[in-house]
Design a protein around this nucleic acid. Sequence first.
DNA 1: GCCGTTTTCGGCCCGACTGTTTTCAGTCG
Length: 573
Amino acid sequence: MSDGRPGNREIADAFALLGDLLALEGAQRHRIRAYHRGAERVRDATASVADLAVAGRATQLPDIGPTLQAKIVELVETGSIAALEAAKERTPPGLVQIAALPGVGPGRAMALWTALGAGDLDALRAAAAAGRLTDVPGIGPKVAAGIAEALARPGADPGDALVGAGIALPLARAFAASLAAHPDVSRVEIAGGLRRGKEDVHDVDIVVATTAPDAVLAHVAADALVDRVVASGASTIAVASNRGVRVEVSTGPPERFGDLLQHATGSAAHNTRLRERAKRMGVSLSQHGWRDDDGEGGTPDEDGVYARLGLRTPPPELREDRGEIEWAASSQPFPRLVTQADLVGQVHVHTTWSDGTESIATMADAARARGHRYLGISDHSRALTLTRGLTPDRVRRQWDEIDRLNAGFDDGFRLLKCTEMDILEDGGLDFDDDLLEGFDLVIASIHSGLAQPADRITARLLAAIASPHVDVIGHPTGRKRPARAGAAIDIDAVVEAAAATGTLLEVNGQPPRQDLDSAMARRALDGGVRLLVSSDAHSVEALGYVEYGIRIARRAGATAADIANAAPWPWTA
DNA sequence: GCCGTTTTCGGCCCGACTGTTTTCAGTCG
């Protein structure tokens, strides 16, 4: 990160806002999209786009042309973008929040402004309380009620609630199982963001192959998991589940299931690129199949959709319009992303020695039953008294128990002496070097002082990485949702240091953590850092949380070679 | 505003659904 220049997020936010304001003004929609695409491209970039722009090289990024580059340079040199400031003068920026309300949008937001003078959420709230919303042309009682409801909800992002994969995925599987049991259903797949491995999603998308959509949709509406029907049509239904999560089920004929699955998997940006490419080839593409001058058709399997366009099928986790379509068109095959089956063992689990619920022997049996060849026992260290963290004395007694148990395994399975050692508030380590020497593997994690400023947290991580005894940084940002957002650590500095020392960064699969997330994990891999995929299990069942870690690793583009515990023990550096 | 199997201009993905209309605009994904 360079000296005081605007960061990628600041640039992206500016372009996104300018796009939103232009949309309110009714500007040409392709111009609006150009700003929004540019914003996303900058947001995704790993290098400083401000630096690139000053060097005249930002236009090498897709979607960044001379105009956007000039505006980035202007932001660097003057601290603002004149076109954005002018747009803010013409159109109240508060309208952007109004346009983001569910069922509103740029058109209705502008109508509310011109008819009622409601330029921000507070003004809109007053107008709603006065019953004036239906005075606006194009707004009837239903839309007015929807707006009033959204305004009454507490929280800053009405209608934009995210749900973690730890909740959404089991729910999706329950719906999918119920659908699979229906006699008129021949295939069911979970699609959408969940299929793409996202750690948080807005809703659950499920696609179904059937020749009797009416019966299937009625079955969904009557499901015990359903609270109410939100929307329904001839081929799709959207329901609110009793967990509060929106679930959307789309149906299509079996012979065109591939088209439906591809469409519903997305992402929206990926699909748009794909259809633009198709159109250049003279093919119109939709969830129903393809159409060209000679006729129309469809494909039962997703591969057929891509093959028709001369493309390899990208792994769903990579379908985010980050260059995967160009990759799919090249001679270079996609990597084989890591799977759960690649994991040879786990090294971050807890037992009754600290705050786990099972003995070492029970966890070992469960790990062997999962096919693991090793299990690292990593109970907490002494500073974490709340979890009965181990003193050096208890550590040595735990080692004795591990030695005894290891002597009893006749199949080559091995328990490893590990620790999840606290990084103290001053950046010091909770155990002395001579004790650390005796562990097979040391995970260093932050559990206290999480309210410190991000640069202090980052400094503590860097201090731990610098220790020759620390092998892994555990759950690097410390997030544990919904209670705690992660620290805004300087991930670039952490990655650089970890790469220099060969320290691993953990992808903690425990659903409230999912830490690192996929964006940071991608940066780690780009920076030459390998990852540890963990369950952080405190019980037998929780060993399965590695699944969520694997999802994140895949979304980051990781192969088995990038994952430390996809290799047998002992690991080679 | 960006970009190229349409290559420096003329295009720019596609459809479902809802509510407000009275044939369609707006929103959403």
